[in-house]
Design a protein around this nucleic acid. Sequence first.
DNA 1: GTCTATAGGGGGATAGAC
DNA 2: GTCTATCCCCCTATAGAC
Lengths: 231, 231
Amino acid sequence: MAGPDTKTTILDAAEALFAEQGYDAASLRELTRRAGVNLAAVNYHFGGKEKLAMAVLARTIAPINAERARRLEALPVRATTADVVRAFVEPAFPTNANCTAGHIAPARDFCRMFGRLMVDQPPFLRLFLAEQFRDLGLRFEARLRQSLPRHDAATVWWRMHFLAGAMAHTLHSADGLAHLTAGLCDATDVDAVVEQLVAFAAAGISAPPLPAAKKRRAAAPATERRARSRR
Amino acid sequence: MAGPDTKTTILDAAEALFAEQGYDAASLRELTRRAGVNLAAVNYHFGGKEKLAMAVLARTIAPINAERARRLEALPVRATTADVVRAFVEPAFPTNANCTAGHIAPARDFCRMFGRLMVDQPPFLRLFLAEQFRDLGLRFEARLRQSLPRHDAATVWWRMHFLAGAMAHTLHSADGLAHLTAGLCDATDVDAVVEQLVAFAAAGISAPPLPAAKKRRAAAPATERRARSRR
DNA sequence: GTCTATAGGGGGATAGAC
DNA sequence: GTCTATCCCCCTATAGAC
């Protein structure tokens, strides 16, 4: 009998089902059927569907954020932007190193679940995730600005936002890209994906800040574009 | 009576409701209640909830993709990466120019709807969106590689994928960032947001391709790695 | 702790009158 | 084209036996 306890069994099944279908479309009936536990067990152990979703997320987020904080602390004073980005991105992916180091369970489906629920928008999930990330976000913003002294805060926040979107999309549907490109892009090589994302985001965040947008006029004279901009 | 026909009324209400709640959570009952039309009208005019969602998306995507194709054609031979990125990004946002040019109706809520349904994952939506984007994706990939002759195809596809994630996240929840930063980032200045996204993505896509990753050291002392940076 | 049974409330779709 | 009424499905949550 390979038997983790009921609570863990439910968490594992919820992770897989939320990954596939998102919060709203996933039903407790299918979940408990797959897990081989009774329907009522979810309410007994977690107190409802919403609390189950938060428990699933917390189980994944807590060790990831702890690792992010640890790496952030460990960065040298003059760390590059790429170092800071890596400290944020790498702990969220099941790389070989993360799996052997143990702070991520390799077999689980947390990856797609995480990316999926990050963009799912039931109000309680928005609030829960915002709360989980607020402190860490502030610390990363500060670190990024250390490495990019000429960047203003708003620019750094916008670019962190872009990174979050790229990361969520990659966590959740990298296999979609593999399919679209007929295997040219290999989503199973997690280490390579992380390297790509870090390189992309570090370069994007490091891009020169926009000229204060007062009379912004985009750079190159393409055939015809940008009649003007206001403000 | 300022009266668009029933079909348009339903499309507008669906756009708003899908934007708020996503496909699964939105119900036809609430939708028809808000629109002030009868519940049965949805099935009469569209043939079901799935077909309604595709109609809502098609109404938004068709003019956006037409504009993208037009701008892509109009690019000079030696267009920069930023030009190509801009041709992809700008038509999807309700900038002042797009609204006055008329290919986007400014008052509508297509922005959040589009970003929301782009990451929603009912199978029929995945297929529908993939079909809508395949051709255009191929043309953008070709153009990007023209501007970046040293980039291999897989690298360009990965970075287009990151751009898609950043764009979807921005379309759907830019206001979340405005809230998180207490107004420091202004999501209502669409032109500025587009400039930020173009600058970020152009720099990210232009980053040097990774060294072939043959013997990338995936392992390293797991406890304390990455003391240094590569460049 | 675990199960069965059921309460109680949606949901999408459709038939048929108007 | 539009409306009412209804079918039949599935959902979450809970009460109460074991």
